[in-house]
Design a binder for these strands. Structure first.
Lengths: 254, 254
DNA sequence: TAAATCATATGATATGATGTTTTACCGTGA
DNA sequence: TCACGGTAAAACATCATATCATATGATTTA
């Protein structure tokens, strides 16, 4: 080993780096809408400077995610995006990084629109007083710091609010689903936070949601959560429209 | 080939079998609420009769799913269920097999309650005429065969209906999410199908959903889908109540 | 008691042996 | 000449073994 190579962070394991490198080639081919057939393992090992063990382990991971197909004699080729496991955390991360365009953010918001109102409805019935207190705390803290803190902190507090609401639904599946889309959600929030009027309306909706939880009113909680997510979607749509002429990478949103 | 002495199912790969064997030990420990620390790799290799490569690959898979934690010197131990990736297809399958109890089915229905009305709402706006035709076909075929066909076929057609509706939302994330819970959903359907009155009401709700899609009415589509899932939940709750005194394995639902 | 050291289990990677699947070529016979 | 069938080779699939690195619990020592 120790072939002369790069200054990449050694902190990341070798197979993780190889996996990501291969995934990027698949994603790029998908964006260019061109088929991709990898060279045979021996050649690929030489190109990447790794052993077959590492290469194969990485390919196996990608195959498990549905991104490539390995067949004897026929080589390894990229599969269309429709076959990918889009909810896989890794793919979601790579997507958020590369495909952070209108369609992806819209799809993401729609998943939130599915999850959060439902979770809020169940939370209204099942939340413990402690959980409601935690939800309230994150909201109050966010308001208290809305002038002083930086955007990062405010987004973090907003995330905490939403996470606490979903957790209060006492449904581990909903909770995990919410966790899976947490990172892309953070990006969406960073967009939303750039529209002060929306932020203001959003805060009111947050309060309405909290009040509904306190009243143990599932329907009102649902509606309030729909309002919260709906406002976020509007902001995302607005951001997308105003930037639709630029190239759509995540950079423009950071 | 053809000669063979080995009539055993070599079809399953070694590491897959090892993975499942280890997973079962984790699940069992979780059910007994007792901590589980695996013996060191060398011993485990001997116990299972495999090489360290295979064992480690299997353990790595389980670690990736959040079921175990591997630490140098400290050995490998099982993690609590709250840490598992519950939406992982494998875990979902193992869960459906072992934990098919009231709580799991309820959680599952709630995810459907989150996804389907939302997907239906978007489908009302975005479905192509072909997609609506496909949805209608699966519904009509199911009605046509409701007397003659066996339960399996009817459930399959019902699944087809729901899959088509979610697909018509044109949101790949919702579609994949729906696919992930497809297998457990099948179990839930097999329960629902045992209550004729519910099935009848469900058919009416299905028609209402189809009509809403035709009218391009998102709100009506949402409400109809909520009705469909709500009825299914009622059936599941009913089945759970009437069987709550028996032990809760999936067997009782098959 | 606290720091230093050691022993040990896991982590990472390479290499090799053997099995399996598919393609492609080649020989035979009609 | 062409169709058919069988065989060999190519490339992937699987599993094992080996070596060195690293982290950490345990022990010892100052």
């Amino acid at each position: 080993m120790t072939a002369g190579f790069d200054a990449l962070p050694r902190r990341e394991r070798l197979h993780a780096r190889v996996t990501e490198a291969l995934a990027r080639r698949v994603i790029q081919a998908e964006q260019n809408a061109e088929p991709l057939v990898f060279p045979k393992e021996e050649i690929l090992c030489q190109q990447l400077g790794v052993s077959r063990t590492v290469l194969r382990e990485s390919m196996k991971v990608l195959a498990d995610k549905g991104m490539v197909e390995m067949k004897p004699r026929a080589g390894t080729r990229a599969r269309p995006r429709s076959e990918w496991r889009l909810l896989d955390p890794d793919i979601l991360a790579w997507q958020a990084e590369i495909y952070a365009d209108a369609a992806f953010l819209r799809d993401l918001c729609e998943v939130r629109l599915a999850i959060e109102p439902t979770a809020a409805g169940f939370a209204a019935v099942r939340a413990t007083p402690e959980e409601i207190a935690e939800i309230e705390n994150s909201l109050r803290e966010r308001e208290a710091r809305s002038g002083s803190a930086n955007g990062e902190e405010l987004i973090e507090l907003d995330l905490k609010f939403h996470t606490a609401v979903v957790a209060a639904s006492h449904n581990p599946l909903l909770k995990e689903l919410s966790g899976i889309i947490r990172e892309p959600f953070r990006i969406a929030l960073s967009i939303t936070s750039r529209f002060p009027s929306t932020v203001q309306l959003g805060l009111e909706a947050h309060h309405a949601l909290l009040a509904a939880l306190r009243r143990r009113d599932p329907m009102a909680a649902r509606r309030a959560a729909e309002e919260v997510v709906g406002l976020a979607m509007l902001a995302v749509e607005k951001a997308i429209r105003t930037r639709s002429r630029k190239k759509s990478t995540v950079e423009q949103f950071k």
